[in-house]
């Protein structure tokens, strides 16, 4: 137990940093938005390991759910008006 939690935290931390790199480096904005949602999802698991279930729920529902959809709505509006996103 004493070793399991830090190991899991390190694993999820590395996954978060990897997803954040993907969000910065991805060529398409849609993939970058999805990667940022993944960062939030891993962050909510990390909050659970850090004994903060309230924060974990909020992050999962708001940070990774609603924020991603806000981005996609704006992306969709911009695509509909004929902007070629690179």
């Amino acid at each position: 137990m004493t070793l399991l939690a830090p190991l899991a935290a390190a694993g999820f931390g590395l996954a978060m940093i990897g997803a954040a790199l993907m969000a910065l480096r991805a060529r398409s904005t849609a993939v970058a938005v999805l990667a940022a949602g993944l960062v939030s999802l891993f962050a909510s698991v990390l909050f659970l390991i850090l004994a903060a279930p309230d924060v974990a729920m909020t992050e999962a529902a708001i940070g990774s759910g609603l924020t991603t959809f806000l981005f996609f709505y704006v992306l969709g509006r911009i695509r509909r008006e004929g902007y070629d996103d690179d």
Binding site: L24, T29, A32, A36, L46, L50, A52, V55, T67, V74
Partner: peptide, 23 residues
């Protein structure tokens, strides 16, 4: 849009730091 995405990632980072201070 990518700049705003960067800001959301930074704010997630701030939240992680704050929660880890309380642990």
């Amino acid at each position: 849009l990518r700049m705003i995405l960067g800001f959301t990632i930074a704010s997630t980072g701030v939240n992680v730091v704050l929660v880890s201070v309380g642990y």
